[in-house]
Write a protein that binds this DNA or RNA. Structure first.
Lengths: 354, 354
DNA sequence: TGCAAAATTTGTAACGTTTTAAATAGCACG
DNA sequence: CGTGCTATTTAAAACGTTACAAATTTTGCA
């Protein structure tokens, strides 16, 4: 039909080739400038005059131009992707979701997208990390449940690949991290129980190999030793134990001699389970025992308002992780020490928590 | 230094240009074949002889070749990306996380990646959908909290863009969906309460505009009418209400005349909150009242084992969503009716739930 | 007015892949 | 031993972008 535009306009008919999506070429033709100029103008290159930069920006906006991510990625090698390794253990209570929300907030307005890589049945997710690094599937990686000598950290440091861990390690080489001050959490929690007159404290800990388990233990022990009171560590259960196991543990503990009367509990569901178990054993919260728990959602404070809590803002953690990783990526020369954030337990009371 | 390879080998020195990552060219040189042949052989094109196909496959594996996603995407227009719209309301109890896990399971072994787009403060996330479609940021979209006349569905049908909604709509044009049979859930839940001898039932519903709210209401009403017993709908609260509001609602309800003695509750946290409220009002679960709740995690059954539950498997939902979307993408000619799945309430008892 | 230097713009090539069209090899047949 | 066929392989172009080098215009100053 109208395929007779070979000599004069030449390109007009080829423009609507794929789907009419505007490209640099479209903008170039519309403005009478060269493709290169458009590219630079939109990138804000000062080599292009202020006036053309503005004009191009305007025309591009009018045409609804958006750069083709695939082409950019192919050319530059940058993927504009941040990978998050999600862990199945964190399924409970929207841990992952809160973190994701914070992350996306930090990435708002940047060209970065968030892609989720789950960690399935592997013992650790080093394989996933290796895969991402090897195939350059992302510009940066974020992961959680950091271990004392985390193999992912080791690998990423070795390959000099940008990452931020949620949690610290004990490697000598410093690396970017965002962590919650679990030492202070446990210390303060124990102090509150002691202030209530509790005489024998116990604590539920995360899996030992997770670094923050050590921090919590340390905080707890410091408080206990300062006060010179009795304590015990619940060895048979940990933060990953199902609520049923936790419940039964506490119920049974009452039947043995010298049960503790105060619990530092770093999980909301676990706290609920503990309360249920103790109730079943005939104890009442606030009378025979007290709990200070870590709060990451409104669950506990709404369901059991009498439990004291110390707040950990996971959305804030996610946002910080995002910000730190962006800095690591954009300014690689930054010393790792400046990319280490320790988030303090919030003074915020549950009712203020939005 | 060794830049004197211009005449003989020619390309050997340029190969290690970026990072040594093998490309089609690398494999071509290693095998003595042309780039095109490699591309076709790896794609399993029958035009290439069986023997070379095998040989190429082997060499490629040995070199650790992986196709460059950006280049493929640029060339073909396919992104190999699935977009999930995450909703902040689902933050509680890992709703999103379970779904994501199912999804990633379905996507295992496919070339598809999962990218998360959060829905922030918008009233609906049509904008996000529009953005994805317009800029071809994905090959398919999955979203939740489907409404009766969901604008996202309208847009996606109009643009003929692959998607699967979690939940049904009431549009006449059929479209792919994965839904849970909330009618049966509510019907069965109410029947169980009636069987326990409860005489006045109530139900907590999701926001009215969400389609599954209607389904639940219908199932509940059918059971109530069949039995000819009294009922009431809790109008002031819904599934999105905070646990605190739910708790207070139920506590106060006891002070007014003719309180209900059975509750159908589609949320675990809400169920806990309701129990707390009723306890505060002096009632005891199993004596003055009963609850049948929807179970999506182990929270409720572990913390309050005496609450009866009916199970909804969100991981299964996610996996189904993934599978259905893949079929929609790969075989676009499939009639939408064949891409509609209604998941039945699980007979599974809480203790079996893994 | 002329001319170098600075400022601004442009053409060409390349990133790694797939697609289209063309070339070559292999083979049977008259 | 060509001829026409099929089977198999290959070269060239393109996707949209950016980097590099080169070209053009403008400006400053003698």
């Amino acid at each position: 039909m109208a395929k007779t535009t070979s000599s004069s306009a030449g390109s007009r008919s080829e423009k609507a080739r794929r789907s009419g999506k505007p490209t640099l070429k479209t903008v170039a033709e519309a403005s009478g400038l060269a493709v290169t100029t458009i590219s630079r103008a939109l990138a804000g290159d000062p080599l292009i005059s202020q006036s053309t930069r503005e004009r191009v920006r305007e025309i591009a906006d009018r045409l609804g131009y958006a750069p083709d991510r695939a082409a950019q990625r192919l050319k530059t090698g940058r993927t504009n992707v941040i990978s998050v390794l999600l862990d199945p253990h964190e399924e409970i209570l929207g841990f992952g979701t809160s973190l994701l929300y914070g992350l996306t907030t930090a990435l708002q307005g940047t060209p970065y997208h968030l892609i989720v890589m789950p960690n399935f049945l592997q013992t650790s997710n080093v394989e996933a990390v290796d895969y991402i690094v090897r195939n350059r599937l992302a510009d940066g990686i974020i992961f959680t449940r950091t271990e004392v000598l985390d193999p992912r950290v080791r690998l990423l440091i070795e390959k000099d690949f940008p990452f931020v861990s949620h949690g610290r390690t004990e490697f000598v080489t410093p690396h970017p991290y965002v962590d919650y001050d679990n030492y202070t959490f446990a210390y303060e929690a124990a102090r509150r129980l002691i202030a209530k007159g509790r005489r024998k404290l116990t604590i539920m800990l995360p899996l030992k190999r997770l670094t923050f388990s050590q921090h919590m233990m340390h905080g707890f022990m410091t408080a206990v030793r300062e006060a010179g009171i009795a304590y015990e560590i619940a060895e048979e259960i940990n933060l990953d134990s199902s609520a049923g196991v936790v419940r039964d543990h506490f119920r049974r503990r009452l039947q043995k001699p010298e049960p503790p009367d105060g619990l530092v509990c770093p999980g909301e569901v676990s706290a609920l389970a503990a309360i249920t178990g103790l109730n079943e054993g005939g104890w009442t919260l606030g009378r025979e025992f007290d709990i200070v728990a870590k709060q990451t959602s409104r669950l506990l404070s709404d369901v059991q308002p009498r439990v004291e809590t110390i707040y950990e803002d996971l959305t804030e953690a996610g946002e910080t992780l995002g910000r730190v990783l962006l800095r690591r990526i954009t300014t690689p020369e930054t010393e790792p020490e400046k990319l280490q954030v320790l988030l303090k337990p919030h003074a915020m009371t549950p009712s203020e928590n939005r």
